[in-house]
Simulated scan of single mutants.
Amino acid sequence: MKKITLLLLITLSLFSCNSNKKTPKEKLHVVTTTSMITDILYNIGGDLIQVDGLMGTGVDPHLYKATEGDVSKLINADIIFYNGLHLEGKLVAIFEKMKHQQIKTVALANILQKEALIDSDYFASNYDPHVWFDINNWKEVVQYATQELKKADPKNADAFEKNKDIYLKKLTLLATEIKQIINTLPQEKRVLVTAHDAFSYFGKAYDFEVIGLQGISTATEAGVQDVQRLANLIIEKKVKAIFVESSVPKRTIEALQAAVTSKNHKVTIGGTLYSDALGNPDTKEGTYTGMFLYNVNTIVNSLQ
């Protein structure tokens, strides 16, 4: 980690000589980290801005390390949007360097009040960073992103505001549809077991008991005792299905399934959920709204 960070910081210093000599651009150059944040900027900015997302489908932001190409994008950005709360833990030093290069960086989750955040005793930020799984949180993030985008590109402020209003209406409709689907699942069946603890905001919003085999960050490893403990809980609560995640290797959930089977109980793998990244860009799951709806349908259908 230290060697990679040092190499990137050296690269940054080489770019820095030209960082304040940018030629005027037709479009604002926006760089984003996670695909969820990229989706926000596409919805708000549309064709009025140039968006470069660093992390694509199946990418784990907890473990993501910037490449030299990423550094080039960052140093040439007009504004950088990232999640914050240490979700992109290995990029923190680079974001600090960006600030010194007079490049605006925006940690979107910082807009949320502490009362809206979920505490964590096991994560560096002391708060769970997976805030997008509460749609109310995400609406606030959208408002904040719009506000900062308007400051960076005031000539298009009215268009950004209009796009934001349209997108917020979509999120309101999404919340209604999701609630209707979840209401078909009896309360006693609302136990969600996943590869890592990314769904606590979802559980709080929709009254699920959520248990992740790994912790909030995938940098932690699940041990044999963790697997056995969770296997016993699955049997006790008669959980029908457990879930892998698109950005986390499935071997841990397969080990959990095997542990349950060894105790003469059956549990299926209910499907793959999108947790830290959206699906492929050319699919419905490649959007925030499509991802959320897909996850909910997968969970409810598997646990019924």
Rank of each mutant, 00 (worst) to 15 (best):
L54E: 01
T298K: 10
L85G: 05
P186Q: 12
K27M: 00
L171C: 07
D158R: 14
D158H: 09
K25C: 10
T289R: 03
I299P: 10
D39V: 07
F160P: 02
F160C: 05
V191I: 14
A241R: 06
I166N: 15
A175C: 00
T172D: 13
A124P: 04
K99I: 12
L273S: 03
V224R: 04
V193Y: 09
I10H: 11
A241Y: 05
N295P: 09
T272W: 01
Q187E: 09
K73E: 01
N232P: 01
L117R: 15
N280R: 12
G270Y: 03
E148T: 07
V59D: 07
N20R: 13
F243Q: 08
L54Q: 06
A222N: 06
L63H: 06
D207H: 12
L233Q: 12
E177S: 15
W138Y: 15
L185A: 13
K2N: 10
I40Y: 12
A152C: 10
V210W: 02
K2G: 01
Y294Q: 00
K169H: 13
V30N: 09
D119E: 09
Y167A: 10
V30C: 09
V267K: 05
T218P: 00
A157M: 01
A159R: 05
E96F: 02
K150C: 02
I234Q: 09
A198G: 08
D207E: 10
D78C: 01
A93D: 12
Y82A: 09
Q304E: 03
S200N: 15
D165M: 04
G203K: 03
I4A: 11
V71E: 00
K250A: 15
I253D: 00
Y167E: 06
P24V: 05
V260E: 03
T261K: 14
V267N: 09
V30H: 08
P129A: 12
S302T: 06
D128R: 03
K97N: 08
K27W: 02
G271T: 07
T261A: 13
L7V: 00
K263D: 02
K204R: 15
L233R: 14
I111G: 12
G69Y: 03
H100D: 12
N76P: 08
I216F: 07
L41S: 12
L174Y: 10
L171T: 08
L171S: 11
T176Q: 04
K97M: 06
Q143K: 14
H196K: 10
D52I: 01
Q214A: 11
I40S: 13
K104N: 15
F208C: 09
K2W: 00
V142F: 05
T220A: 13
S16K: 11
V239C: 10
K237E: 03
Y167H: 13
H100G: 04
K21T: 13
H62Y: 04
H62S: 10
K238C: 06
K240W: 03
I253R: 06
S13N: 12
F208S: 12
I234L: 11
K263G: 07
A175L: 00
Y127G: 08
E140Y: 06
V142I: 14
I118V: 10
G46E: 00
L48E: 08
F208Y: 13
I269K: 05
